[in-house]
Design a protein around this nucleic acid. Structure first.
Length: 897
RNA sequence: GGGCGAAUAGCUCAGGGGUCCAGAGCGCCUGCCUUACAAGCAGGAAGUCGGGGGUUCGAAUCCCUCUUCGCCCACCA
């Protein structure tokens, strides 16, 4: 690219695809197992295969990319391992819906094999979409290592884990009350059944005592329940053993209303005496708590399941004929009506409570007794807990560690069997030959039952998706094979994700990491916020408040997207974006990219002929501004590096922004113009420094804005690494840190600001050149003004600046922070009364401040107890304010106020 | 029921004992198409740092409390 071709407006769409290809061709993203460099590894939170990129992905992956690019530039062997997740329930639902729409068929019409084949077809079609979209936002993943949780090798790892855990006694099969989604037709784990508030009713139902001659009337026990339709599954009523109100009822019988089933009354300490009537119906097959109670009661209790897998009333003798087959909520209404007719509904009241819902389809989950596979979690949780408590696993921000710890402490067994077809089929072989119920758990079928020689069939269920995701950090690297990758790149370093997934994924990866690899999967978990709209609602498809990152990339470029998102995502806070105003939302990123582009445009058109790099020049030839910008650049390096090391990505973004815009563009570029144009000598020095400083800025900004920085990098003349993505991260050069230059250039800036302020105040037309005078408050100020006199004149549009001028005439006065006095003689343009007013209010402000600091310094406690440097600073302040005040009063007198 | 977070300019947020007479971006007001950039330049207005109490020489910052929002966990059916 030749410099003259740079258009005044940055057009990201013209370059992004090419740049990405350039990186791919150069193999920049491919991690080298042979490399001796210190590895740095991030594994991607694998998006669902069927997913389309949304803003949450945008944020999550931008963060990972910034981190991986930063470490890559720092010389580490960076590996960002990408891939996708088969997402059992979600994907199966999607394909089921498609088939239903297109062919009006259910999965059972197709049969298992054909259905699974259809899902594969779908996944093959959509699987690369999300990965291509990740490329569009600049993600520097190592695509040669892309994995899918249903890849053959990966699947082998999943099954092996199941078999191993089973043989270690950490996986078992058993009857438990699990969360059942009647719509998805599968069991769910505790984490997949999420609480949501629901408006229901609390029904007070009379259970007639059935072991007494009197039938109706006063002799019944009232039970409060939200779920009357489950009463046909009741096996007992219980009250608290110390509840006086029900003394004597223990051992009596009641009849389940609408049936002729009698059940006993018993006691249980689990009953809450303050709730309802303090008499609890025990429905062991449809309530986990009731299941526990029933198991604790004396004697054997049947556990009738009265609601079937579809959520309808079961065809069970205990269920009244009129209700059988009815959907559970219809059955509830009808049962209530029937109770009312029987006079057994004492009353009902509105009741709002938290009910578990399926996290995929939001259907109310049905607690249901069934035979499932579970992982025993306590032993696995131990090392994961210890790692956190002993500081081997860190969370950023720290508070999420508490959430992690709490969950692991209270952990319950994990139901991992799903009654789905899409996923890893459980490697268990059932024999049901002549009452032999032996189960063989093995990677391959045993052929015949090892116990009775009967035929076996494979378990119909698949494993929870998360049972494969929890192996992601090492199964992606070839485990259980001892691959080179595994040796080199495990354990990894940073995991970036959202808080919602700490239980589902993060904690479980740590458990699996310790159990199978004997080592943590990563050292730091960086928890970022959620992307929300301006009403602070989570962006979601159903609310229609989402932003399509690809649309944003098309409109404003990937760098604008990345910059906006990173700058707006301080550690630990949510990112608020306005879906109704993309223009405003992404303006800061887009504008900044454009600024960078134009700085480059200016520099490149003036850089021709530069051959001698800045290091080769004698620093004695450097002007004050040169020393200043070099010093500021060191600060920018220090600040950006520290920010990225501390995961303060927003600080890194803002540091780059301010350095480029407020210092490099607004001041240095302006200061350097006369030299570049040949108006003053030293053009080559200026060019060398400008080039160096800009190059540094590109390096610092590259992790956040990779496309534009790479593009501009390629057009910079001079010797340096050919690809910025692979270039070295800058290190601060202490010899360039120049406090004196920063102090003096600061005085120059203050003087320019003061004159500009006067110009604006008195509406001096921009084209009009005026005269100004300054009386420096110190030799430092004097030297600064002399050194940059030309700069001051140019930037403040002055005919001349008189340093130590006479200060005579009618004009506007300004006092600089260091006490230097500025005088702009404007003659008739000056409204003396107005000027006096302005100066007086200035004086007032100074006096107030002075009074404050004087009071402070007069306070013995302060002077004695405060640290000496603080006291010293206060003294400095007082001194400088006094100087300013003295200057001001001279001015006031001169004006005759 | 338990826990966590947030409250600072109209909006989104920095700042987490003195370096801040309280900052940024966007928005707003004034003036400018000044040969890198109008996606820009220059200047400016705007905040009792949610209320109350306390600790301290000193509080936006630490502690307590209240209010309001948000999130997570939880077997009162």
């Amino acid at each position: 690219m030749t410099t003259t071709k740079l258009a005044p407006r940055y057009d990201p769409s013209a370059i992004e695809t090419d740049i990405y290809r350039r990186w791919l061709n150069a193999g920049v993203f491919t991690a080298d197992v042979q490399s001796r460099a210190d590895p740095y590894v991030i594994v991607i939170p694998p998006p669902n295969v069927t997913a389309v990129l949304h803003m949450g992905h945008g944020l999550n992956n931008t963060i990972q990319d910034v981190l991986i690019r930063f470490e890559r530039m720092r010389g580490r062997e960076a590996l960002w391992l990408p891939g996708t997740d088969h997402a059992g329930i979600a994907t199966q639902n999607v394909v089921e819906r498609l088939i239903a729409q297109k062919e009006d068929k259910g999965r059972h019409d197709l049969g298992r094999d054909r259905f699974v084949e259809r899902v594969w077809e779908h996944v093959r079609e959509t699987g690369d979409t999300i990965l291509d979209q990740l490329k569009a936002i600049g993600s520097s993943c190592d695509w040669s290592r892309t994995r899918f949780t249903l890849d053959e090798e990966y699947s082998h790892a999943v099954l092996k884990v199941f078999v191993d855990l089973f043989h270690q006694g950490l996986i078992y099969r058993g009857y438990r009350v699990i969360h059942w989604c009647p719509r998805c037709h599968t069991a769910l784990s505790d984490e997949e059944a999420e609480f949501r508030d629901r408006d229901d009713h609390l029904f007070y139902i009379g259970y007639p005592l059935s072991d007494t001659a009197e039938r109706r009337g006063t002799d019944f026990v009232v039970v409060a329940t939200t779920r009357p339709e489950t009463m046909f599954g009741d096996v007992a009523l219980v009250f608290h053993p110390e509840d006086e109100r029900y003394r004597g009822l223990e051992g009596r019988l009641v009849r389940i209303p609408l049936t002729d089933v009698d059940i006993p009354i018993a006691v249980s300490a689990r009953v809450e005496r303050e709730f309802g009537t303090a008499m609890l119906k025990v429905t062991p097959a449809h309530d986990a708590n009731d299941f526990e109670i029933a198991n604790e009661l004396e004697g054997e209790y049947a556990m009738p399941v009265v609601i079937d897998a579809a959520g309808d009333m079961a065809d069970d003798p205990r269920v009244p004929t009129a209700l059988r087959g009815l959907e559970r909520y219809a059955a509830r209404d009808k049962a209530v009506a029937m109770l009312e007719a029987e006079g057994l509904l004492e009353r009902m009241e509105p009741y709002r409570h938290a009910v578990r819902h399926c996290y995929r389809c939001h259907t109310v989950v049905e607690p249901r007794l069934s035979d499932q596979w579970f992982v025993k979690m306590k032993p696995l949780a131990e090392p994961a807990l210890r790692a956190y408590r002993e500081g081997r696993l860190k969370f950023v921000p720290e508070r999420w560690g508490g959430v992690y710890e709490n969950w692991l402490t209270e952990i319950r067994d994990w139901n991992i069997s799903r009654q789905l077809w899409w996923g890893h089929r459980i490697p268990a072989w059932h024999c049901e030959h002549n009452g032999c119920r032996h189960i063989t758990v093995a990677l391959e079928t045993p052929g015949v039952c090892p116990q009775c020689g009967g035929s076996v069939s494979q378990d119909e269920d698949v494993l929870d998706t998360w049972f494969s995701s929890w192996l992601w950090p090492f199964a992606t690297m070839g485990w259980p094979q001892q691959t080179k990758d595994l040796q080199r790149f495990y354990p990894g370093h940073t995991l970036a994700t959202a808080a919602e997934i700490i239980f589902f994924w993060v904690a479980r990866m740590v458990m699996a990491g310790y159990h199978f690899m004997g080592e943590r999967p990563f050292e730091t978990v960086y928890i970022h916020g959620t992307v929300r709209d301006t009403l602070h609602r989570k962006m979601s498809k159903s609310l229609g408040n989402g932003i399509d990152p690809i649309e944003v990339v098309g409109l404003y470029g990937a760098d604008a997207l990345r910059f906006t998102v990173v700058a707006g995502a301080p550690v630990g806070t949510d990112v608020i974006l306005d879906p109704d105003d993309l223009e405003t939302t992404f303006a800061s990123g887009r504008n900044f990219a454009n600024k960078l582009w134009n700085v480059a445009r200016f520099i490149l058109t003036n850089l021709e002929g530069t051959t001698v790099p800045w290091q080769h020049w004698d620093p004695a030839q450097f002007e004050l501004a040169d020393r200043w910008i070099l010093s500021r650049a060191q600060q920018a390096i220090v600040d950006t590096t520290e920010a990225l090391e501390r995961f303060r990505l927003n600080d890194a973004a803002n540091t780059g922004y301010h350095f480029v815009w407020d210092e490099l563009a607004d001041w240095y570029v302006e200061q350097v113009k006369p030299r570049l144009y040949g108006a003053t000598p030293g053009g080559d020095v200026a060019r060398a420094i400008l080039s160096h400083v800009f190059e540094t800025a590109l390096r610092l900004l590259h992790p956040i804005m990779p496309f534009i920085t790479e593009e501009l990098w390629a057009s910079l003349p001079g010797e340096r690494e050919s690809i910025l993505a692979n270039a070295a991260w800058p290190t601060p050069n202490s010899t360039l840190v120049d406090g004196e230059a920063e102090d003096r250039f600061g005085r120059v800036q203050a003087l320019v600001y003061a004159v500009r302020s006067v110009r604006a105040e008195y509406h001096v037309p921009p084209a009009t050149q005026i005269h100004a005078e300054v009386q420096p408050a110190s030799t430092e100020a004097l030297e600064a003004f002399n050194a940059e006199q030309r700069t001051i004149e140019r930037l403040a549009k002055l005919t001349t600046l008189a340093v130590n001028g006479s200060g005579e005439g009618i004009g506007a006065h300004q006092v600089l922070p260091d006490g230097s006095a500025v005088f702009v003689p404007l003659g008739d343009a000056i409204d003396v009364a107005k000027e006096c007013g302005r100066l007086r209010s200035e004086m007032e402000r100074l006096n107030t401040q002075l009074a404050g600091v004087t009071r402070k310094l007069a306070n013995d406690h302060f002077v004695k107890r405060a640290p000496p440097d603080v006291v010293e600073r206060e003294r400095d302040k007082e001194r400088s304010w006094r100087e300013q005040r003295d200057t001001l009063s001279t001015k006031l007198r001169a004006l005759g106020c």
